[in-house]
Structures are given as structure tokens and as C-alpha cells.
Amino acid sequence: MHRFKVLLVDDEEELVMALAERLQLRGIKTSVAYSGEQALHMLHDEDPDVMLLDLKMPGMDGLEVLRRVKKARPPIQVVILTGHGSDQDAESARRLGAFGYLRKPVDINELVLTLDHAYQHKLAEV
């Protein structure tokens, strides 16, 4: 039984595939996108509860994806997962409405907990 659905967005394909499998083993339904543009196209069909989003990707960067998601689908909770982030990026993400901000590589239990909190936050808001 899946608890909720997460869309993972990262251009590092091997990372996002391994993470997706690990989350599925923990009862979280996942789908993956390898670019910001692909993620935005998938929003309607996939209807995720939470988006796990990298910041630095070729093409549209994570902050722009975050801005567009929060405008188009405000209930979706966005958690940033980045290996590049500065304190300034973290502040920008918070201002744009990101629920959480994690750094790579992340502890799987911390990730699951953060995604779970993000989902609970979504339920409380709607």
C-alpha cells in the first residue's frame, strides 16, 4: 500500500533511479524526471503529492521549476535535494515556498522523514 506519491527530478539518472527504488521499498510511490522541463510536463498526468527536486540541472534550473510548480500547483510540496546549494540558494528556495532543503548525499531515513512531513503538510493544507 503506497502512502503517497513523490516525483523525483534530477539529471543524475543513476542517482534518481536508485533513490526511487529505495523509496518504493519503503512504501512510497515514485516517478522520475531527468530535467525541469520533463517534470513540469509530467505534473498533470502524475499528480504527485511531493516533488524531490535538484537545483542545478542543464536547461531549466531547480529554482525556476519550483517557482512554476508553486504557481501552477500550489498544494504540491517541494523538497530540494542538492549537492551544490549555497546558503543563498537555500534562502531563495524557502522564499519560493520549498518545504524542505536537503544536501546530497542524504541519509535515507532523514529523506523519508522529510518527505513524510511534506505530505502531512499537504494534507493539512487542503
Binding site: L15, A18, L25, G83, K104, P105, I108
Partner: peptide, 20 residues
């Protein structure tokens, strides 16, 4: 160093999946 961290993250999650 950013790229190295990406590589380490892939190794970490792949070995984590093996452990799972």
C-alpha cells in the same frame, strides 16, 4: 567538488539499495 559529491551520492544510494 560538486561533481565528486554527485558521484559519492550515486555510490551511496546504489550501495544503500544493495543493503535494502
Amino acid at each position: 567538488t560538486h561533481e565528486v559529491k554527485n558521484i559519492l551520492a550515486i555510490i551511496k544510494e546504489s550501495s544503500g539499495l544493495m543493503e535494502d
